[in-house]
């Protein structure tokens, strides 16, 4: 018995190591066989580590009083000082509020308008007209934010069309400097984002609508359902899964409100409403050279976003809708 158990032990011990050795050998052989694939990918894996992963090391700056001229070992460590400063700083709390408000407005507006536009485009019966409308509706998406900001600021300028129309209709007595009043900024931003992206965002919903079985519409017509009823009971439910996935993913991006329109349309008069985390990082980092504080703010955003996105992705997978990928 003891001998037997001994051999058994040895057997059970030796088997995995043998397998492991075999595994390593097999692995090396596989690598050799797939040399070409490795040559195709390894340079870019190195690239991705340098350009995408290495900067994360820079987050250490958030815990230092970083001075660009000094080596890493010479930097002064300050712990959570910058984070504590941020969360007691009225300006940063305002920035946080702006980020969330801008995102929420963009989220709600973006969703509702894109879905509505997709439904209405789908209801167009003339194919040519439909195509023209679609083509025109995504034009602004392809323009840079610089161009879009130039257009927005021109439309909203003192002698722009918005002031002319409102004055002409008698809604206002004097021209309004729209970008000079902070309270209007969130609305302007939401409108600009919608103008730029509504046509593009509608594409995905139109694709979802095109998957709906046409027989459902025919059957509903026979049953006497009106146009509106068909939209409410067939088209919208048909888009449900796409809507849910996109909604969840967009909530994951809640802190990523973008920076281009805020930076380009922001000015001294609306700064209290336009400045979000990304703009704050640019201003502190690039203009004031406070690298540590800017990095702390950026790191805070990225970490929270990361958690949100992972949660959103797994939630959407759990609901059987498939994640982002």
């Amino acid at each position: 018995m003891p001998i037997e158990s001994n051999t058994m032990d040895r057997n059970t011990n030796s088997l995995p190591t043998e397998q492991k050795e075999k595994g390593i050998k097999a692995f090396i052989k596989k690598c050799k066989d797939q040399q070409a694939l490795l040559w195709m990918t390894v340079p870019f894996v190195i690239w991705v580590f340098i350009f995408k992963y290495l900067p994360v090391w820079g987050w250490t700056m958030a815990f230092q009083n970083f001075k660009p001229a000094l080596n890493f070992s010479e930097q002064e460590w300050v712990g959570l000082k910058h984070f504590l400063f941020l969360f007691t700083d009225d300006r940063f709390l305002g920035v946080l509020r702006n980020t969330l408000a801008q995102s929420l407005i963009n989220l709600v507006l973006g969703f509702v308008t894109a879905i509505a536009l997709a439904v209405l485009i789908n209801e167009l019966t003339n194919i040519k007209f439909k195509r023209v409308v679609q083509t025109i509706s995504y034009l602004p998406h392809f323009l840079s934010w610089v161009v879009a900001a130039a257009l927005v600021s021109s439309v909203l300028s003192i002698d722009g069309i918005i002031n002319d129309i409102l004055m002409g209709l008698g809604f206002i007595d004097d021209e309004i400097l729209w970008l000079g009043v902070g309270e209007y900024f969130w609305g302007i931003l939401g409108a600009a984002e919608t103008w730029k992206n509504v046509g593009w965002n509608a594409i995905i919903y139109l694709a979802a609508i095109s998957m709906i079985d046409q027989e459902q519409y025919e059957a509903a017509k026979i049953d006497g359902a009106s146009r509106i009823q068909r939209i409410l009971h067939i088209t919208i439910p048909g888009m449900k899964s796409v809507i849910i996935v996109l909604l969840i993913m967009n909530i994951g991006y809640i802190l990523e409100a973008g920076f281009e329109p805020q930076y380009l349309l922001g000015n001294g008069q609306n700064v209290e409403y336009s400045e979000n985390i990304d703009v704050f990082v640019i201003k502190y980092g690039i203009s004031m050279f406070n690298f540590s504080l800017a990095t702390a703010a950026g790191m805070f955003k990225t970490v929270i976003s990361f958690i949100f996105l992972i949660a959103a992705n797994s939630l959407s997978k759990k609901m059987g809708q498939g994640g982002l990928y």
Binding site: I50, F51, K52, Y53, L54, P55, V56, W57, G58, W59, M61, P68, D278, V281, I282, G285, I286, F291, A294, T295, G298, M299, K301, T302, S305, F306, L309, I310, L324
Partner: peptide, 13 residues
């Protein structure tokens, strides 16, 4: 797609 080092670390890189 989920994270990036952020503006300043990328700039220093």
């Amino acid at each position: 797609m989920y994270f990036n080092g952020g503006l300043i670390p990328t700039f220093l890189l």
